[in-house]
């Protein structure tokens, strides 16, 4: 029953999203820039993500930040980061915050986790479809899995040409995180920050310590 409801829900969403995209597509494509959808996570993930974003030049705009609705800390950090970026690049702010429900709070029961994960998936698709970014950038929080799956669907349906880039946390020296396992074949580029990890997982790339 639940499955059926989900399938019907997704189909309806899909139709709406396709309409949105057809309308948006022509307006969205500007030459020489790349729009970014960055998935923010708790503490360490957010810190690493902002460090990665600091390496991107002014051509990466607009920037959409996906943040769990309970995560006020990341919201604040992103706003500080953007403020700083405006000062150094002397540019107008071109970013927006997209709040989505968190898939699992600490100490939540597994039964309700399944439901809230489905709900998170349900909310992720319209986000990705309406932003239709050139780049989805993520580094490990659970939220990034449904977002990347939505990005993959965009590509399969040939509605977008998004590049999914996954950067594994510097904490991972020998093993991949759960999210990286799940996205190992979904991500177009998977970067790791220790050479030893690259050797174990040949689909990944090591270009140095980034954060």
């Amino acid at each position: 029953m639940l499955l059926l409801l989900t399938v019907v829900g997704f189909t309806v969403l899909l139709v709406i999203c396709i309409l949105c995209i057809v309308i948006n597509l022509s307006a969205n494509k500007r030459k020489g820039t790349a729009s970014v959808l960055a998935v923010m996570g708790s503490g360490g993930h957010t810190k690493e993500m902002l460090s990665l974003l600091s390496g991107l030049g002014p051509h990466y705009r607009p920037r959409y930040y996906v943040i769990a609705n309970t995560d006020t800390m990341s919201k604040q950090k992103v706003e500080e980061f953007e403020q700083q970026k405006n000062i150094t690049e002397n540019s107008k702010p071109e970013f927006s915050l997209v709040l989505i429900p968190r898939s699992r709070e600490v100490a939540q029961s597994w039964g309700s986790t399944v439901l809230s994960t489905l709900y998170a998936l349900f909310k992720s698709f319209p986000v990705v479809f309406s932003c239709n970014p050139d780049l989805i950038l993520c580094n490990g929080p659970g939220t990034c899995v449904p977002i990347c799956l939505a990005g993959l669907l965009l590509k399969i349906l040939r509605l977008g040409r998004v590049q999914i880039v996954y950067v594994e946390s510097i904490c991972r020296v020998d093993t991949l995180s759960m999210s990286a396992w799940m996205l190992y074949y979904v991500a177009d580029q998977m970067l790791v920050q220790w050479p030893s990890l690259q050797t174990k997982f040949p689909r990944t790339q090591y270009i140095g310590k980034l954060v």
Binding site: L56, H59, L191, I207, K209, L210, V211
Partner: peptide, 21 residues
């Protein structure tokens, strides 16, 4: 411990998107 090099990430992305700075 040497600091991270986010600019290397920027260069990597520029190549991916053919962006010339």
């Amino acid at each position: 411990f040497p600091p991270g090099q986010p600019h290397k990430f920027g260069q990597f992305m520029d190549r991916l998107f053919n962006i010339n700075n």
